[in-house]
Structure formats: C-alpha cells, structure tokens
Amino acid sequence: MRWKGVSAMLTDRLRKVKSLMEEGGYESLFISPGPNQRYLTGLHYDYPGDAWDTIITWDMITAEIIPLDGDPVLVVPRICENWVRETSEIDDIRCYSGAENRKAILKDLLGNVRGTLGTEDHLPFKIYEQLAAALPQIKIKNASDMLSHARLVKSEEEIESMRKAAGIVEKGVKVGREFIRESITEKEISIEVERAMRRHGAESISYCVVQTGAKTASWDPPSENRVKKGDLFLMDLSATYNGYHADITRPTVVGAPSEKQKKVHGVVLDAQLKAIDAVRDGVKAGVVNDAARRVIDERGYGKYFPFGIGHGLGLEAHEMPHLTEYRDMEMVLQPGMVMTIEPTINLPGEFGIRIEDDILVTVGGRESLTTLGKELVQI
C-alpha cells in the first residue's frame, strides 16, 4: 500500500510500524513531537532552549495519529498549519483552534478505539492525564521501545546523513584543537567549536562537552576552567545533519603527555580496537561490550571503566542498542545498525580518557563512519 502524498521511504516506515503495532496489540498510536514524529511525518523542530517545551504543551501540541487500519493523520494547532503543510509528507491534516475543537477532533479520530493506544515515554504526564480523561475507553500504553525497534536498522539515506554528520563533528574537533592554548577557558573553546559545526552544516548541536584537567574524569558542561600546561583536554561532540547524529570524542594534551597519560591512552585505544573488531552482524551486543571490558580489566583499570562501551545512534544521540551491562546485551546486531564504541578510563582527581567513534554494522563486518585519527594529539 502507498499512502497519498507519501514517499516510498515513509511508506516503508509506516508499513514497518503497523506490522509492529499488530504484533504488540496496538489499535492506534499517538505520536508527539520528537524523533518518532520526524521519522513518521518528516516534521522537525529546531527551536532553541526552552522553546521546545512550548510545542508539547496540551494547548499547542502537534500529534500524529496512526491507526492500525487506516491512514495517518496530523492534528495541529491552526497557527502552525502552513508550516506543517509545507514540511510534512502526511496528507490528512486536521487543524484546531481551541481546547474544545481539539477534543472534538481527537474524539472523531479515536472515539471508536476500544483497545490500546500507544504513546511515548517523553510525553508529559499532564498531557497523558488529559488524553486519558478525554478518551476514557482507551487503554494507554508506552510504545517507545516498539518505535525504537522500528528505527534500529538504518537505510542508505539515513547512513549517508550520519556520514555527513560525522564529517561536521570531526571539523569541530579540529577547530577545537586549533584554539586550545594555555589560559583559554573551556567555554571559550566550546563557543568556537559550536560555531564551526554550525558553519559546516550542522542542523543542531546535541552537546559540546569540552573539559580540561581533572574535569575530564567526569561529564560536565564547559566552565570557566582555564587550560594549563600538561592538562589532558577532552572534547565529546554531537551534532546532526538532516536530523541524524554523529557522536565523537577525542583527547588532546597541552604540552608533552605524561607517561601515565600515554599508558592510559594506550589501554583505551586497545580496548576500542578490540570492541570494534567484535562488531559484526549476528553477534550479540554483549560480546562487543565484553571485548573492551576484558582489555581494561586485564590491564588493571576495571574499576575506572564507569559505564558500557557505547550506544546506538540515529535520530537520537543515544538510542538502541545500548551497549551496557544493564540493557540490550542480548540484542543481536544487524546490518544497518549504527552505534558508538567509546571505552573510557576515568581516574578521579587526575584525568579521564575516552576515544569514541561511530560504527556501522555491515554484512560480515563493520564500517567506521568516522575517519579522525585516534592518536593522543599534543598541542
């Protein structure tokens, strides 16, 4: 089936989601602004800061309704109609101009549903309560994991966007290294790095974590800390192209690295290479995590490896598969999945080193979407 006005790519996505809905017993989905709505409509929002909160309030929400049997519908505030019609691939758009009008539209679309309505875990609780009150006959269930599974395997178009995002983030790392010098602050460097990524085509900046000295053993926002000679300097950067993320981390030393810095960097690099070598289709995510942890444990740094080996990438900076001991370890890798491989050793009060690359699972192996060197660069 091909829905009216919908591209072949979006048709495939909707078909995949409807198949998962049938398996999971969902009669309809209520998709709010976020990665799933972009995936299933083409709509996206690039609002700064707290402006994001405005578009997921009950008074202004743009929601996609996907029935198991029937065509998808967008319910939008009248003030957003022109933008939605220009941006979305969904043909059926219902506009509301007030609470009663919106309630009537939702009852028209969902009033006959007697089964389960799927929502997402980022839907504000206030909206959940009001949705439940407006539609008391419906059982509401969190469909986030189901929707994440639908987005697990990336198409060639998605992978190409992630390659471009990786190139943008690599330029950010290079510019950051150009600006590193004694006495400059973390904030000053982060400003230049963000500008560089925007200038080279970043649609949005997910995070720009720039740290120096002992702060590299944590994950804190950039501060007024000043770079000192001998400091370990860490950049953990994530930006998007066409909605798709890259996430790259590289360490740098200001001046000559100490023997301890070189030793820890060598352990982290060996762990990352072992983990990357373990990535291939048909392998469980836990095998990749264990490959890195084994290296770090054998070298005596196990208690300084604070979390898992990585996470999935896509329309979210952190998504399935989560390569950690507490989640997704049994998930079998498939061609088209993209994930970070980022072993870390954090020595509290001293420094932390992480090397992070974005890895695509291919048939029989893997491909790195990042090309930046892994050496401990000296400035």
Rank of each mutant, 00 (worst) to 15 (best):
F233R: 05
H149D: 05
E298R: 05
Y301K: 08
S7I: 11
P72Q: 10
R198Q: 08
P124H: 02
R293N: 06
I309P: 03
P124M: 12
V75S: 01
D270E: 15
D290Q: 11
L131G: 06
I379D: 07
S218Q: 13
Q378W: 05
S28I: 13
R2F: 09
S144P: 09
P221Y: 11
Y304N: 15
T362N: 06
H149R: 14
V6E: 00
P257Q: 04
M9K: 09
E129N: 12
Q211W: 00
P251I: 06
R327K: 14
I140D: 11
D357F: 00
T252Y: 14
G172T: 08
A202L: 09
G34P: 08
I93H: 03
T116K: 15
R226V: 03
D290G: 02
I140R: 06
E156T: 09
V209Y: 12
Q261N: 05
I31C: 04
D50I: 14
R181N: 03
S368N: 07
D358H: 03
Q130H: 13
M60D: 10
K16I: 08
S238T: 06
L372I: 15
V283D: 03
V75E: 01
Q211S: 08
N36P: 04
T62Q: 07
I359G: 00
R198M: 13
E156A: 13
E120L: 14
E375L: 12
E178M: 05
P251W: 08
P348T: 09
R163K: 14
S258Y: 07
S190D: 04
V175E: 11
S148W: 10
Q137E: 15
G373P: 05
I168L: 07
I61L: 15
Y96I: 02
L369G: 01
V6T: 02
T216L: 03
G243T: 09
A202D: 02
L234G: 01
M146K: 03
K262M: 14
H311E: 01
I341C: 06
S258T: 15
R163M: 08
T62V: 14
T11W: 07
I159P: 02
P67R: 09
A256F: 07
I180F: 10
A166M: 03
G312T: 02
G118R: 01
I66A: 00
T119H: 12
E188R: 11
G312P: 04
I309N: 02
P257F: 06
L147T: 02
L131E: 11
Y45L: 07
E120K: 04
E188H: 03
L109F: 03
R199T: 13
G42R: 12
A8E: 05
E375F: 07
L40Y: 06
T324W: 00
I55Q: 06
V264T: 02
S155L: 04
T240E: 01
Y301H: 02
R181Q: 13
I180R: 00
W219C: 06
H44T: 15
